[in-house]
Write a protein that binds this DNA or RNA. Sequence first.
DNA 1: ATATGTGAACGGCTTCACAGCC
DNA 2: GGCTGTGAAGCCGTTCACATAT
Lengths: 206, 206
Amino acid sequence: MEKIEIPRKAVYRLSVYQRCLQRLRENGVETVSSEALAKAAGVKSTQLRKDLGYVGQFGTRGLGYSVETLGEAITAALGSTRLQPVVLVGVGNLGSALLHYSGFKKEGFEVIAAFDSHPVKERVRGTGVPLYDAAEMASYIASHAVKMAILAVPATHAQTVANQLVAAGVQAVLNFSPTVLEVPDNVYVNNVDLAIELESLSYFIR
Amino acid sequence: MEKIEIPRKAVYRLSVYQRCLQRLRENGVETVSSEALAKAAGVKSTQLRKDLGYVGQFGTRGLGYSVETLGEAITAALGSTRLQPVVLVGVGNLGSALLHYSGFKKEGFEVIAAFDSHPVKERVRGTGVPLYDAAEMASYIASHAVKMAILAVPATHAQTVANQLVAAGVQAVLNFSPTVLEVPDNVYVNNVDLAIELESLSYFIR
DNA sequence: ATATGTGAACGGCTTCACAGCC
DNA sequence: GGCTGTGAAGCCGTTCACATAT
């Protein structure tokens, strides 16, 4: 069973399509054309069909796609039909906000634990997420077979913590620290740098 | 005076370079080679030089770049050498976290006001950012000539609020809502969707 | 000798055009 | 007729190779 690599950009868009489908399903829509779905996702219809081509083929020509079937297919392709466990490291301002952000669970992720070098229980109140000292991180990750981590520590500590995460078995990191992380090729990193997002935008304002 | 369009991706990377330069400057480094800077930014040296080519040419062959001069040049190219005013709309979990996030100011942005349909003073405590009712948003933006906004409202309201922002004169939006915003061509949007970042990552873990 | 600047080659993603199926 | 699926074409961004400057 070999897995054809889906381009990173396509993977990203597939996630977007899935969310759109979810919304359609909630509204009781059963069938959708590539044209309509593409518009909802903000892409061209040809692009949408190309992307779906990576996953398989399950449209009905002349009609469109079954919202139900397509949604399942994408979920299957992207993996994780059930909740994927994630840990969060760094419970500062940003970290604690992310904990309070309820959007993750809805999309199939569960933050099962948070770690900080100076745990402040206050910050996780009301989230139901247990908070541990950073020293326990490695063993927790290993024993719970956690594969994904959200990194929200200060830039100065980011690389060090990332190394620990990788050593403990983490394969994918969502990095909020304003640093370029050095990781092995088999570890994937998505960077979210709020300041840079703003800064790059500012070029475009006249 | 015409402005050659710099590709969006290059603009983004230039922001990254600028941050690296800033750090070098703090460390008293005066000169840097494309090789070294590229490594710090996580790109290839040829790419770095290509990107700098969009801005101008101020390297010394055989030597490298002056950290000082290069920094200034990039700042000039990206605009905004002084603090750019920004408003934040939607002070929920995420929004209030962003307010508490101190990284913006350091990078040249100042959140000068926050708006919410149900203002809860509690949430802005300690940030020094004034909080107003959403009803006052349009007039505030217009009278303060605000050109950038951070959007952190629920998906259901995102488009409506975006329309108001655009109508009031906002030209660039950093959108945290999980929605595809429809805006005029002359308005730029950067999307940050935390759930989708995680989801697209999850495909790559074995 | 060393490092920049840039035209040319390359590669991957997007778009087009159209064949195939309902 | 309408809409999907896909090879081919086109486009944009990255990388290479090397001329050029100090």
